[in-house]
Simulated assay, not measured.
Amino acid sequence: MTTTSDHTQQQAKDVLRGASRGRDWLRQRGLPYSDEIPLEASTGEFDGGGQYGIEVPVINSFRILEQTLKGLREEGVPVTRFNETLGAFLLSDAEVRDMLDLCRESEVGMVFALGPRPEYDRKAAFYRGGFGQSQGRRINNNDALAVIADEAIRLTGLGCRGLIAYDPGVFRMLKLMRAEGALPSGLQLKASSHCIVSNPFTAAGYADDGADSVTTQHDLGLSVLQEMRRMSPSLVLDIPTDVYGNKGGFIRFPEVAELVQIAAPMFLKIGASAQAHPHDPVSDATVRARVQRVALAMEYLDKSGLEAVYIGSKAPQRCVPVSA
C-alpha cells in the first residue's frame, strides 16, 4: 500500500526543472546552471595572504575620514580601506593629499571615485531623467573620457593607489593606460555597485576589461557569489553586507561567515545602512552609526567560530597610498 507520504516523496524525486537544454549546456561546460548548487569553501587568498578585508564607503571628505578613523580606533575595530563615492574631481588637490597622507600614516587604504560621473557632466540632462537613470552611469562623450583619464593621472600622481570607475569602456581605457605606464602598475581598479555586477558572466567581463575588484549587486544569493568566485578566481569580490535605506535597507550580518568562506579573497563592504541615501550629508551621528555597524558585523564573524584570516599587511589590494 502506498501512503500519502510515500507518494509525496516519489513526486519530489520526479520533479523536472525547466530550461533543461540550457541547464545541460551550461553544466557540461562547468558554468553556473542552478541556484541549488552546493556551497563550497573558496581556497583563494589575497596576494600576500588573507581571506577577507573590511571596506567602509561614503568617506567623502577629510573630516569624515578623520572622524571615522577615530571612532574605529576607539572601538578597536579594524578597517582595510575606505571608499570616496561622490567623485574626487569635487575635491581639491590639497584635500585629496590630506586624505591620502592620513591614510598612509594609518596604514589604511583609500579608493577614490573617478569623475565626472554622467550626472555631473555637461551632457547630464539625459541621465537626470527617469529613463537615463535606468541606463547606469555610462559615459556618452569623448570629452568626458579625456577628463577621466586626466583625473586618473592626477590622483595617482598624488599617491592614490585605488580608483573606482562606473563604465566598462572606462575600464578598458584605464587598463590600457596602466599597461603603457601612464598609470602605476600596482594601481587597483574597482568596479562600483553602479556597474550592476549581478551574475558571474558580468563579473568575468569586468575582470577581462581590467577590473581588479567588483562591488557585487547588493541582493545576490550565496550561490551566485560562489559562482562569481569560481569563474573569476583572481577577481576580488567586494560584497555589501548592509544597504542604504533607499536601496532596501537590508542587513546580512548573520551571513558574513558564509560570505567570507565562499567568496575569498573578498571585502566585507560595511556601513551603508547608516544612511538613507549615499548623497545624504554625513553627520557625526552617521559616523557613529557606521562605526557601530562595522563593530557589529565583526562581532557576528567572531561569534560564528570561523577562523578567518584577515588580509595581509603587504597586499596591494589594500590600496594604501604612497608618497607623492
Rank of each mutant, 00 (worst) to 15 (best):
A152M: 03
A88C: 09
A285F: 06
L176M: 12
H7T: 13
D101R: 08
G48D: 02
L174K: 03
E299F: 04
I196T: 15
A146Q: 14
Q135H: 11
S223D: 05
A165T: 07
S323M: 10
A207P: 02
I270E: 02
A113K: 05
D24W: 14
E227G: 04
A297D: 01
I270A: 04
G249Q: 01
A182L: 09
R21K: 14
R81D: 07
G50K: 01
G210W: 04
R318W: 10
V58I: 12
E55H: 06
T85K: 08
V111R: 14
N60D: 15
A207V: 03
P118N: 05
V58H: 01
R252E: 12
G305D: 02
A144Q: 11
E66W: 09
F201W: 10
Q317D: 13
Q133E: 14
P38S: 03
D24P: 07
R63I: 07
S232P: 04
S234M: 06
R63Y: 11
G44Q: 13
A285H: 12
L174P: 03
V15H: 12
A113D: 03
C160S: 04
N246C: 14
V96Q: 05
V322A: 07
S42P: 06
V243E: 14
V197Y: 02
P38T: 08
H279E: 11
F131D: 14
A274P: 06
G48P: 09
L301R: 06
G245W: 03
A41V: 08
F267Q: 07
S192M: 08
N199L: 07
N142A: 15
K123V: 09
V77M: 14
P265S: 01
E105C: 08
V58W: 01
L189G: 02
S61W: 10
S192G: 07
I37W: 15
L225N: 01
L16C: 10
V58S: 12
L222S: 09
R122C: 06
K70E: 08
T2C: 07
E107V: 06
R290W: 00
E45R: 14
K123N: 13
A124C: 13
L155R: 10
P38N: 04
A207H: 13
L39M: 10
C195I: 03
G109P: 01
R81K: 13
R154V: 00
R172T: 05
I196L: 15
C319T: 06
T241D: 00
P316W: 01
I164T: 05
D219R: 12
V56P: 03
F250Q: 12
S20A: 15
R138T: 12
A191L: 11
R288Y: 04
G30W: 05
K190P: 00
F62W: 08
A165W: 03
V108W: 00
S20M: 10
I164E: 00
L158M: 05
K13L: 15
G245T: 04
G248S: 03
A152S: 05
P118M: 07
Q226K: 15
R27H: 04
F131Q: 13
G129N: 10
L183S: 06
H279F: 10
Y244V: 12
R178F: 01
R17L: 15
G76W: 05
R117G: 12
L301W: 01
D167T: 10
R154T: 00
